[in-house]
Design a protein around this nucleic acid. Sequence first.
DNA 1: TGTACATCAGTGAACGCGCGTTCACTGATGTAC
DNA 2: TGTACATCAGTGAACGCGCGTTCACTGATGTAC
Lengths: 208, 208
Amino acid sequence: MTTAAVAESKPYHHGDLRRALLDAAEAVLVREGPSALSLRAVAREAGVSPAAPYHHFKDKSELLRAVAMEGFARLKLAMSSALARETAPEERRSALGVAYVEFAQANPALYRVMYDCARNADQMPDEHGEDVSAFQLVKDTLTEVAGGQVSELDLELTAIASWCAAHGLAEISKFEKFKPLKDALGGERAFLQGVLAHLGVMAQRKDG
Amino acid sequence: MTTAAVAESKPYHHGDLRRALLDAAEAVLVREGPSALSLRAVAREAGVSPAAPYHHFKDKSELLRAVAMEGFARLKLAMSSALARETAPEERRSALGVAYVEFAQANPALYRVMYDCARNADQMPDEHGEDVSAFQLVKDTLTEVAGGQVSELDLELTAIASWCAAHGLAEISKFEKFKPLKDALGGERAFLQGVLAHLGVMAQRKDG
DNA sequence: TGTACATCAGTGAACGCGCGTTCACTGATGTAC
DNA sequence: TGTACATCAGTGAACGCGCGTTCACTGATGTAC
């Protein structure tokens, strides 16, 4: 009946309910969207009583936070992978932005939860000392593009601007308004690349 | 007791309950945030029974939609005003972006409702034939900056990129992460201008 | 000018619902001796 | 190796809550004659 319940007469103890709850949360998100993501729905999806999650999360918001953290981790992974697939700096930068937006498009409900969570806390959920942050990934790539000839301040501001644009595009790109333009450009990805390419940024700064 | 109820033994008929409900909705948003924006809370705030709004809105989502539409109208107004205060194209463009973000910062709950609504419909709420859209405002201003030397396609993509960046900045700018940078730059507005200035765009395109 | 009547815009009680959380409980597991 | 016992990780019933919406109603307003 439930997705997470495996065959063979499930045991009283679950094994790894925390993990199962996070997976169940994602299943609920995919199937019914962010507004359906209640503690009870997650427990139901995991095939467990409504009180069970309290042995693994202090309360609902802590569960949501864990979901959001996983989402950000996966987003970063998607970005790293995209980066690794290209060698030329310009292509790497473009791929980074496209990967970001495509992740958001592929996981719209998760992406929403991620930023709802971030907004509530005025910060991204802790990556508690991960090796290198997604934001650092952006800065490094932009440095490559500029060939190292850029001040720390410009770099920081440009990275923020890029992040803003990617986030904005993630939220806005599916508006029907843009359909004609996408068709004219030859598809979704061309559209994304087109918009992101129009964030010229450093080139202007350098000769301005 | 309620904000909207005027003195003198309120009459049975309200006069303009629709208007009062929209104002009440905003009051609720400001005081308690988007998650508290229920039909019942709005009715309560307007000093009216829970069933009363149904004479003015088909259901909850139609009320929210009306709130969102008003929000977008006010955002456009703020942008027009900011534009009118500057003459030089570059300053006008900057003022436009700053006005956008500052509106979102000044009305965070309303801004959230506006985009929640837009996302649900995959489009902005109808401006049903307003004179000129906010997006057109952006395109016109960008054309001024470019001195008319720009293709329709570049213009469109640049305008979208600007919109994305403004939206992203609106959602991200209050992260604590940026506090040091803001201080270094001398304040919130300088930060916004700094980020937005790093969307060079057309300059790069022209000599690239 | 008065009156009958339709329509409008409220009331307030009630409906069923799903929610987050708590509680006393119990089955399963692990550990000390 | 066996056993007593503490601890862990579940159950399931119950709590109070606010919600969106419906309903029969009634007071106020406007209009036709």
